[in-house]
């Protein structure tokens, strides 16, 4: 398990995830981490909702949860999600970063330190600039950066910021995202 696929999204991104998840291959050989901005209360319904859309296992991880291939990890509300060298998850309840907790920037920057050039980071629809710093870190470590095509985004600010402020390798329509992810599978 050398690869990690990261997805960051805010307003308008749930719709995209609901389209992407059912199309994902049932036996992915790497984990996916999703960082969504959502309200501060514990909203377990979101995990259930996402789980209902895929045969992959969607988990809202506890602290020290090990990453396993084929699992989708949803950052818990109100915690930053970091990765450790041994590929376990560390949660962190420190200050909000750019008004966000979980912060997409923080998870992207942390993950690329562990997975280096095998990091893929995708920014979806959203109304703030979270993710830009993270994408820069991914690029600086030779990872791959992706953004949802702003034309297709319900709120185009976040993917536009990503595209104009950092170097984006692929701009994808929602219908192309699952195909891209499935192709990364190693047989």
């Amino acid at each position: 398990m050398d690869t990690i696929f990261l997805i960051g999204g805010s307003a308008g991104s749930l719709k995209v995830l609901l389209e992407v998840l059912p199309e994902l291959s049932a036996n992915l050989t790497f984990p996916i981490i999703i960082i969504l901005h959502r309200k501060g209360y514990v909203d377990s319904q979101l995990v259930n909702l996402l789980n209902a859309k895929t045969s992959l296992n969607v988990i809202e991880p506890d602290d020290k949860e090990p990453l396993s291939p084929g699992n989708i990890y949803l950052a818990p509300p109100d915690y930053h999600l970091l990765l450790e060298q041994d590929k376990t998850i560390s949660l962190d309840f420190s200050e909000k970063f750019n008004f966000s907790r979980p912060s997409i920037d923080i998870t992207f920057s942390s993950a690329v330190k562990i997975f280096k050039e095998n990091t893929f980071a995708l920014i979806l629809s959203g109304a703030n600039a979270d993710g830009v710093e993270g994408l820069k870190a991914v690029k600086a470590n030779n990872g791959t950066t992706l953004a949802q095509n702003p034309i297709t985004a319900e709120v185009n600010y976040m993917p536009l910021q990503a595209i104009t402020q950092s170097k984006i390798d692929f701009v994808l329509n929602p219908s192309e995202i699952a195909t891209f992810i499935n192709k990364l599978n190693v047989s």
């Binding site: 970091l82 450790e84 060298q85």
Partner: peptide, 9 residues
């Protein structure tokens, strides 16, 4: 202390 977190701090 957890490495990822303390490095950030």
């Amino acid at each position: 202390y957890s490495k990822a977190s303390i490095k950030r701090r």
